[in-house]
Simulated scan of single mutants.
Amino acid sequence: MTGRFPANSAVAVDLVILTIRDDLLHVLVVERANPPFAGALALPGGFLEPAEDLNQAAERELWEETGLDARDLHIEQVGAYGAPDRDPRGRVVSVCYMALMPDLPTPSAGGDARAAHWLPVETLTRQPNRLAFDHHTLLSDAVERAGEKLSYTTLAASFCPPRFTVAELRRVYEIVWGTRLDPSNFRRKVTGVPGFLVRADDRTTATGGRPAHLYRTGPAAYLRPALSRETLTGQR
């Protein structure tokens, strides 16, 4: 590899932290305390420090800006963003991470964040200029990635408590995909995927109807066969 690394270049990590609150998909945003974009909303994140790798930087920023521990979340890398003008301070390449967790608490702000809030994803995706930098693009890409992965991985269970009903799992799919699913088709499909769900020994009456079986996630990481939105909505 040849060439001189420009002095004004930097590497950063940004976090798209998703959870379900009040039956809606929410994302964590912070109110920036410092320029650029002081007072604006942004995804939590920061610059890579010399002694850490990307994953360590993402975990550190998560803790510093929100008080959340990465060990309690599903976290994965979404992609890298390096448009020359994405940051007015200079050339900044950002690596975006997506984190998922059920019913996350109200976070505490820290670092260069004045405040931290949960906001509905739909509210922000409909307002491209609401977020600082190019964070609208990062958010949109992460939400799209989450929706795609629901069809072929066990990712949806990351939004559920340790034990959950099939109806609760179905609601996760409906919220992330933004569509109603046929309950019978959904139950048949997800309980038929080897290694996806393991029935627990007890039931819950939280739904107010007949006691429903509780499940936990099994050993599978991928769904074979994958789930089809068309099939689950009863269109096929």
Rank of each mutant, 00 (worst) to 15 (best):
C96K: 03
C96D: 11
C96P: 01
C96A: 15
Y97E: 12
M98V: 14
M98D: 05
A99F: 03
A99V: 05
A99W: 05
A99D: 06
P102N: 10
P102F: 11
D103L: 04
D103T: 09
D103M: 10
L104S: 04
P105N: 06
P107E: 08
S108L: 12
S108Y: 10
A109H: 14
G110S: 02
D112T: 04
A113I: 00
R114I: 00
R114C: 02
A116V: 13
A116F: 03
H117P: 00
H117Y: 14
H117T: 02
H117A: 07
W118T: 00
W118D: 11
W118E: 12
W118G: 05
L119T: 00
L119E: 09
P120C: 10
P120S: 08
E122F: 05
E122T: 14
E122G: 06
T123F: 10
L124E: 06
T125K: 13
T125C: 01
T125P: 05
T125R: 15
R126L: 13
R126Y: 06
R126P: 03
Q127R: 13
P128C: 07
N129W: 01
N129C: 07
N129V: 00
N129A: 13
N129E: 13
N129H: 11
N129S: 11
L131E: 04
D134C: 09
D134W: 10
D134L: 12
H135P: 00
H136L: 07
T137S: 06
L139C: 07
D141V: 01
D141I: 02
A142D: 13
A142G: 09
A142P: 07
V143W: 04
V143Y: 10
V143C: 11
E144T: 15
R145Y: 08
R145G: 03
G147S: 15
E148I: 09
K149P: 02
K149Q: 15
K149F: 04
L150D: 12
L150T: 12
S151L: 15
T153G: 10
T153D: 10
T154F: 02
A156E: 12
A156D: 09
A157T: 15
A157W: 00
S158Q: 12
S158T: 01
S158L: 01
C160N: 01
C160R: 07
C160E: 12
P161Y: 13
P161D: 14
F164P: 04
F164G: 08
T165D: 01
R170S: 01
R170T: 02
R170H: 09
R171Y: 02
R171M: 04
R171V: 02
V172A: 13
Y173T: 02
Y173A: 12
Y173C: 07
E174Q: 15
E174R: 11
E174H: 11
I175C: 09
V176N: 08
W177T: 05
W177F: 03
W177C: 04
G178H: 10
G178Q: 06
L181W: 01
